[in-house]
Amino acid sequence: MQGRVLIIAGSDSGGGAGIQADIKTVTALGGYAATAITALTAQNTLGVEAIEEVSAPFVARQIDVVLKDIGADAIKIGMLHRRQVVEAIADVFDRAEKLPPVVLDPVMIAKGGASLIATEASEAIMSRLIGPHTHVLTPNIPEAEHLTRTKIDSLADMEKAGRLLLSEGPAAILMKGGHRDGMEIVDILLTKDGIETFSHRRIESRSTHGTGCTLSSAIATGLAQGLSISKAVARAIRYVENAIFEAPGIGAGHGPLNHGHTVGRFD
């Protein structure tokens, strides 16, 4: 087991996304997962039915106790439903002498279309987390449009939005291209050193619930294990592709991935 990853995210009762997908991903890639739960959701493959809040001080307490004892080689942030939670997390980070790389997946809209974030929370994410504390930001196209207030229709638009987000302070922006039409998906990694593209064939599947959570946790695991950003992203994309390809076909809606495809089968 190599690489301690602290996951700050919401719980998915259906097990396909959120903290459940994050823990599975980190474990399947050989890392150690610790958690700070930001919200509870009642959801399945058909959608989100309800969200139960976790108090901001308790979110911060979870982070504090993990970092003081277990520590972390990387931090992954997912669902941040309310401004108070964002502020509490940022306050913990502000007090830290040194933070490990932070991978922030700006979770805003569920696969079924339900909003998972309040407006003031997204503003706080930009000012308190993305600028001062984020190492790698992993928005999909709708999230990037929301954060940059721009329309993204092309690869050139993705690059432009990525540059805007990079100017806010992160070391890298991974612009995920899965929402664009076509049989080829192109993801764009932007850093101060340049641009790298990752092209891969689209897998036609309804089992795509939790792909964003899974990808960002896989990237965080790679960073925790000492991989460069580029190598961490490349491995994470391959891991997600195989997880979709081997998905179990559970549920009547957007089903979960097979996070355990790296794990040996036992009789």
Rank of each mutant, 00 (worst) to 15 (best):
A252I: 11
I229R: 01
A232W: 01
S217P: 07
A220F: 02
G251P: 03
G253P: 04
I250K: 08
A220T: 03
A236G: 13
I219M: 07
A236I: 09
A220L: 13
P248D: 13
A224E: 04
A236Q: 11
A218W: 03
G249D: 12
T221S: 08
I244P: 00
I250T: 10
I244H: 04
E241G: 06
G212P: 03
P248I: 09
A247G: 02
G212A: 11
H254M: 13
P256N: 12
G253V: 06
G226C: 08
A232S: 09
Q225Y: 05
V240D: 03
S230V: 15
L227V: 05
Y239H: 12
C213D: 05
V240A: 07
Q225K: 10
G255C: 10
I219W: 02
V263K: 11
T221H: 01
G260T: 03
H254E: 15
A243G: 04
L223Y: 00
I244V: 14
I219C: 03
H254P: 04
H254R: 14
S217R: 02
N242S: 13
A218K: 02
I250F: 10
S217F: 00
R235N: 15
T214W: 05
G260E: 14
P256A: 06
I219G: 03
L215N: 08
L223H: 06
A234E: 15
V233H: 04
H254W: 09
I244C: 05
G222S: 10
R238P: 07
A232G: 07
K231W: 11
S217C: 13
C213F: 01
I219H: 06
S230M: 08
G253I: 04
Q225F: 04
P256L: 10
S216L: 08
I229F: 01
H261E: 15
H254G: 09
H261M: 12
G260L: 15
E246V: 09
G251Q: 11
R238M: 15
L215T: 08
N258R: 09
P256Q: 13
Y239M: 12
A224D: 00
I237N: 03
G212T: 03
S230W: 00
G222W: 01
Y239W: 11
I244G: 01
H261I: 14
A218C: 12
T214S: 15
L257N: 05
G212F: 02
L227H: 10
P248F: 06
Q225N: 07
V240K: 01
P248S: 09
A247Q: 06
G251E: 10
R238D: 15
L227Q: 13
L215W: 02
G222F: 01
I250Y: 07
A218Q: 02
G212D: 03
I244S: 00
G212Y: 01
L227C: 10
A252W: 10
A252N: 14
G253N: 13
H254C: 09
I219P: 03
G226D: 06
S216Y: 00
E241H: 11
L257H: 04
R235W: 08
G260F: 10
R238C: 15
K231R: 14
G260A: 11
G251W: 05
I229P: 00
L215K: 01
S228C: 07
H261D: 12
T262M: 12
G253Q: 08
I229A: 00
Y239Q: 12
A247N: 06
G249L: 11
G222H: 06
A236M: 13
C213L: 06
A232D: 02
A252K: 14
P248R: 07
Q225W: 06
T221Q: 07
H261V: 14
H261S: 14
G249W: 08
G253C: 12
